[in-house]
């Protein structure tokens, strides 16, 4: 069973992470879903795969009525991100799912149609949430060719999808990064193999370093906070990625 934990709260504005599911099948990668809630406007980031839908739904119900989710945000098109879309729409056909324009005609294979999917243009866009505003920030080619992160300037939280992801061994799967050097070892292989473009990576690092970020929240692994955010950005900027680092030929 997944658990829901509030990681930010300021009045009715809050971020809740749904994470760590010890009961999920081993063959399914563990994912973090984040509820962004402001004055009753509820958005769920990367709602996850259909097989973990019951666990996400149930964990969410301990915080809000899951039927009150109005928006979904899919950072990209992967099955661990958005294959539960059909089930969410089954519960509430009014849900709108924000996703890169590249994927708005691919994702209907998981559910939804032109009404339920809202295409985010390549340059990104803002969206009102409650009395505030969130931003869909471009992060193309990291790893998906149509990829976005979600930034909440008031909470100073960046949801970074697969960027910052770590595949943690069960004994080290803490919710927040505690020992950066130890933690980042579990992120290295993932970033080397999944993030194919040095150009895209440096462009993102440069933009991210100028943003005010208290917490960097990835879709897999632990949350970076405080100085670890900048540590991560610097580490990523230095990390060799792309085809030259990938020995696919003998």
């Amino acid at each position: 069973m997944k658990t829901a934990q509030t990681i930010y709260q300021e009045g009715s504005h809050r971020w809740v992470v749904i994470a760590r599911d010890p009961s999920k099948p081993n063959c399914v990668i563990d994912t973090n879903e984040y509820l962004v809630s402001r004055e009753g406007d509820n958005l769920l980031t990367d709602p996850g795969g259909s097989e973990i839908f019951p666990a996400v739904f149930a964990a969410l119900s301990t915080i809000v009525d899951p039927m009150s989710i109005r928006y979904l945000f899919a950072s990209h098109q992967d099955p661990d991100i958005i294959s539960s879309l059909g089930l969410w729409l089954e519960c509430n056909p009014e849900i709108r799912c924000y996703v890169s324009r590249l994927w708005s005609s691919f994702i209907p294979h998981f559910g939804g149609d032109e009404n339920s999917l809202v295409a985010i243009p390549d340059e990104g866009m803002g969206m009102p949430l409650g009395s505030g505003q969130i931003e869909y920030v471009p992060a193309h080619f990291l790893h998906s060719s149509g990829n976005f992160h979600l930034y909440d300037p008031d909470a100073r939280i960046l949801f970074s999808g697969d960027v910052g992801a770590a595949l943690l061994p069960p004994e080290e799967d803490e919710l927040f990064v505690r020992d950066f050097d130890k933690h980042i070892r579990h992120a290295e292989g993932f970033h080397r193999r999944w993030m194919g473009s040095t150009e895209a990576k440096l462009d993102w690092c440069e933009r991210a370093s100028r943003m005010k970020i208290d917490m960097l929240c990835p879709q897999h692994g632990s949350i970076y906070q405080g100085d670890d955010v900048m540590r991560f950005i610097n580490w990523f900027a230095e990390l060799p990625v792309g085809l030259s680092t990938f020995r696919h030929r003998r």
């Binding site: 019951p54 739904f57 119900s61 899951p66 089954e90 519960c91």
Partner: peptide
């Protein structure tokens, strides 16, 4: 399949 997943979700919710 959808029914099974929705049913599981409903059963898990208090």
């Amino acid at each position: 399949r959808r029914y099974r997943l929705l049913k599981k979700a409903t059963d898990l919710v208090a």
